[in-house]
Design a protein around this nucleic acid. Structure first.
Length: 641
RNA sequence: GCCCACAUAGCUCAGUCGGUAGAGCACGUCAUUGGUAAUGACGAGGUCACCGGUUCAAUUCCGGUUGUGGGCUCCA
């Protein structure tokens, strides 16, 4: 048995082949040894108890890193499965990976369980943690492993092994009385999982395919100690507090009704948000050289057959009939836009033609996926189609990216980009797809912006670049999308007359910036926690007289503010100041003005900025110009002093 | 669509191990004229989501429907 050489931080350490890293750890002069969970040797991950067979350069994995947390959570999923097995001996095991903020494990229970069972599973888990069981790794030949799981009646494990490549070594991990097929690595022992919490229970199809059996998935999270767990649970609470469905009701922005599942009703205050947002959108698009059109919501089925929607998007479309002829309700604006283009002959000189359409589209979503404003069946898309020469592709895509960046910057979002490639269900030739995908890539490279690739996620008619917005809680939402389309021009026989007098095909970009107005507003509500910037706030200012004696003057102030086009309310109800003040604060009105004897005497108003910032007294004119500046600049609350 | 859970006053929620229900806020009336996050009293308001079944009796138990919530390919 020969010696191996491990290079750790430039120092060489000798290790006998087949021994684990633990055997040399004691002799090493490095700090934080108790936080080491595993190690990479030339890129291969080992846990501490695993026999090591090759030497190389070592990178240690510590507990207080994302990688370390991932290992912990994966191990915690084993602990959960073990606890579940103790309580429900007949359960069959599927898979249990670590995910972004925790882990899950999928089970096939003989009897359904409910969220009430989570508590006792968690108790059982803590027992296992207290026993501080060692995670031990071993391997088995394929046949033996298959026999084992067949004997133990674990059909999902059998299927997993059968799908693994023949040459793959099958590793197992054992802790206490629990053994699971597992690639590893794991924490050295169960005692490392000091802080854990089961979060929810849900159904999940085996391997995510709805044709497969529905399993029961239990979600949980874990940390190395209690403090970050508490922080994580607080973050969940904060997210609940900001939930747009809750705030939307509380602030009277929109509502949903049983009579229209997935269809939002916009209330007067929500309409202000919608309209102000569109006002801003139109300003920016006009500056960027767009014109605007509007096409009908219902169009003949034949059109959707021609566009390919009937074949590729049928299951998401609502249909109807007019005078015996089948019609469909538009799920997208493009076919209508194509008809407008075809209405006259175009010259290459017309290009690029940037044609916007703020269109109401309807898409059938499965009942189970509806979610507030984020996932609806009817939404307003801030669409546009850009008709152009193939040579203008790169330039136009760059312009769209720049426009999107400009609009997003006003809201203070951060975001990342994704390039989605050809899906399985699609129209067009391979050549078109390559050309189109290449065009998008080229634009991204030229602009020097980072992006990820998401394979097979493109639209059926072309590849796309998506903007994923990150809200202040770090959650991602897809909004803007830029899709390059070389199929519709073909299908709709779009042409232009080129310089040499010949007829040619234009290229089309489909793009949105906000994506869905509904979803975007949902994100805004959560991003601002309902405390909107002044330019968007449904009510910008409320005037509070202290007593009835001050009502007349308050009414004068109110009229003046109204004449300056502010969205202002006068609250001269017969209530105490504190009461009305509280109500204005709860309604998150940005400015609160108090009128009493002192203010009437000095011809001033007493101004309070929502969020307890008392600005003191000032002349009404001062307040007007202060607010005007804030609105014109479209300042965000976090930009103000 | 599928799995699990939930549905009680305008809102947020109690409650009934089967005998037709309660609080706070909001709303109305009255009193109070109060200086920066809730003045007090009184009052009105509910076929306990809908449709069936079991029962002397169902808001409660059972089944169905509708809606809502958490999820449904991040490779053992």
């Amino acid at each position: 048995m020969g010696n191996l050489t491990l290079s750790i931080d430039g120092t060489n350490v000798e290790l006998e082949s087949g021994r684990s890293f633990t055997s040399v750890l004691a002799g090493l002069s490095i700090g934080n040894k108790e936080k080491i969970l595993g190690l990479y040797i030339d890129g291969t991950l080992y846990d501490l108890h695993q026999p090591i067979g090759t030497g190389g350069t070592v990178r240690l994995v510590y507990a207080d890193t994302d990688e370390g947390l991932g290992i912990l959570r994966h191990s915690t999923s084993h602990i959960m499965a073990q606890a579940v097995r103790h309580l429900f001996p007949d359960v069959k095991l599927a898979i249990g990976p670590s995910i972004k903020d925790g882990y899950y494990y999928d089970f096939d229970f003989t009897e359904p369980i409910s969220s009430h069972d989570l508590e006792r599973i968690e108790e059982e888990m803590y027992k296992i943690v207290e026993e501080d069981q060692r995670f031990e790794r071993f391997t088995k030949p394929r046949e033996e492993a298959l026999q084992l799981f067949k004997k133990e009646n674990e059909p999902y494990k059998v299927e997993l092994i059968e799908d693994l490549p023949d040459e793959r070594e099958l590793s197992f991990y054992k802790n206490g009385d629990f053994v699971d097929l597992c690639r590893g690595p794991h924490i050295p022992s169960t005692g490392y999982a000091k802080a854990l919490k089961l979060l929810s229970i849900a159904g999940a199809y085996w391997r995510g395919d709805e044709r497969n059996p529905m399993l029961t998935r239990i979600y949980g999270t874990s940390f190395f100690n209690a403090k970050p767990l508490k922080g994580y649970l607080n973050r969940i609470e904060e997210a609940k507090r900001r939930d747009h469905r809750k705030l939307g009701k509380q602030l009277e922005l929109f509502s949903f009704h049983e009579e229209g599942p997935g269809f939002a009703f916009w209330l007067p205050k929500g309409m202000v948000l919608k309209n102000k947002l569109m006002e801003f959108w139109r300003e920016e698009h006009e500056k960027a050289g767009y014109v605007e059109v509007q096409t009908p919501i219902i169009l003949k089925k034949d059109l959707w057959v021609q566009s390919g929607h009937w074949e590729n998007y049928r299951e998401n479309m609502y249909t109807t009939e007019i005078d015996g002829t089948p019609f469909a309700i538009k799920p997208m604006n493009c076919p209508g836009g194509m008809l407008i283009y075809k209405e006259k002959i175009h010259s290459y000189r017309d290009f690029p033609m940037r044609v916007g359409e703020v269109g109401l589209v309807h898409r059938h979503e499965k009942s189970g996926v509806l979610h507030g404003l984020f996932r609806v069946r009817s939404f307003t898309q801030d669409d546009a189609h850009i008709f152009m020469l193939p040579s203008q592709i790169k330039e136009e895509i760059i312009r769209v990216i720049r426009l999107t960046e400009r609009i997003y910057s006003v809201f203070g979002f951060s975001y990342h980009l994704e390039l989605s490639t050809r899906p399985d269900k699609s129209i067009g030739t391979d050549e078109m797809w390559e050309l189109a995908t290449g065009g998008l890539e080229e634009a991204l490279t030229e602009i020097g912006i980072e992006y990820e690739i998401s394979p097979k996620e493109g639209a059926f008619y072309g590849p796309k670049i998506d903007f994923h917005l990150e809200d202040c809680l770090g959650r991602l939402h897809q909004c803007a999308t830029i899709q390059l389309d070389m199929s519709f021009p073909e299908r709709f026989d779009l042409t232009y007359i080129d310089q040499d007098g010949s007829e040619k095909r234009p290229v089309v970009i489909h793009r949105t910036v906000l994506g869905s107005l509904e979803r975007f507003i949902g994100i805004l509500i959560e991003h601002y926690a309902g405390r909107f910037p002044l330019w968007l706030a449904p009510v910008q200012i409320v005037v509070l007289p202290i007593t009835r004696d001050h009502s007349e003057h308050a009414s004068f102030v109110y009229e003046r503010l109204k004449s300056e086009s502010f969205r202002v309310e006068l609250d001269d109800r017969n209530e105490k100041l504190g009461y009305k003040m509280r109500e204005a604060e709860v309604a998150k009105v940005p400015y609160i003005v108090v009128i009493g004897a002192k203010e009437i005497e000095a011809s001033t108003v007493s101004v309070r900025k929502s969020g307890k910032k008392d600005l003191g007294s000032m002349k009404l004119d001062e307040l007007v110009s202060l607010m005007e500046d804030e609105i014109t600049a479209r300042s965000r609350p976090d930009e103000l002093k």
